[in-house]
Simulated scan of single mutants.
Amino acid sequence: MNSLDYFSNLKDEESIALRVDELEKVYGILRAGKNSEGYSTLSIKIGESDMETDLGPAAILRADFPQPKNIMLFCMGALSENEDAVITGEVDGMLKFDPRFLEFGTHVLFITNATEFGHRINMALAKEKNAFSSPFIHDGFGLINYRELNNYSGALGLFTKDIRYSWQREFRISFGIESTGLNSRGAYEFQVGDISDISHICPVQAMIDNPITIKRRNFKKTDAGYEQVTD
Rank of each mutant, 00 (worst) to 15 (best):
S179F: 00
A58R: 14
S40H: 10
A126M: 10
D162W: 04
M123S: 05
V204H: 03
G118A: 02
I29Q: 06
Y188E: 07
I201D: 03
Y146L: 09
L95V: 06
E24Q: 09
N130Y: 11
T106N: 12
A114Q: 08
M207I: 11
I71Q: 04
V192M: 07
I173T: 01
E178I: 05
D209F: 04
K69R: 15
G56L: 08
D162R: 07
G118S: 07
F159Y: 13
G181C: 12
L42K: 01
L30Q: 09
A32C: 05
F159T: 01
P68W: 13
L10M: 08
H138Q: 15
I16H: 03
L73V: 05
E170C: 03
R216C: 01
T88I: 07
D64V: 05
S134K: 13
I208M: 12
F171K: 01
S3Q: 10
A206W: 08
I16C: 12
I29V: 15
A206N: 09
S36V: 08
S196V: 03
S15V: 07
F117M: 13
M94Q: 14
R164A: 08
S3W: 03
Q168D: 04
K34R: 13
H107F: 05
E148P: 02
A85C: 05
F136S: 01
I121M: 08
M51W: 13
S8K: 10
S196C: 01
I144L: 06
A78M: 09
F110V: 14
D54L: 06
G140W: 12
T180G: 03
E148F: 05
Q191T: 09
E83N: 13
I214S: 07
V91I: 11
V86W: 03
D197M: 01
N35T: 02
A59G: 09
E83C: 06
M123W: 01
F141A: 11
D194S: 04
A124H: 09
M1L: 10
F141C: 11
E148Q: 05
A85I: 07
R164F: 02
D223R: 12
T53N: 09
S134H: 15
A59M: 02
G186M: 12
E81Y: 10
F190W: 14
G47L: 09
N9C: 01
H107I: 00
T160C: 14
K69E: 15
T160H: 10
L95K: 01
R19L: 09
I173K: 00
M72N: 08
L158A: 11
E13A: 07
A126Q: 10
E128I: 06
R19K: 13
S199W: 10
I163P: 00
L182Y: 01
G193Y: 04
R31L: 06
A155L: 11
K127G: 09
V108N: 01
I163A: 05
S3L: 03
N218I: 11
K127E: 15
M94Y: 13
I46H: 00
G140V: 04
K34N: 15
E227F: 00
D12S: 14
G33L: 00
L156Q: 02
E170V: 06
I111A: 06
L156E: 08
E170D: 05
E24I: 02
I163D: 13
A155K: 13
E90T: 03
S36D: 15
F65Q: 04
M1A: 11
T160Y: 05
G118K: 10
E189S: 14
H138D: 13
K129H: 03
A155M: 09
L158V: 05
R62I: 15
N122R: 12
D5L: 12
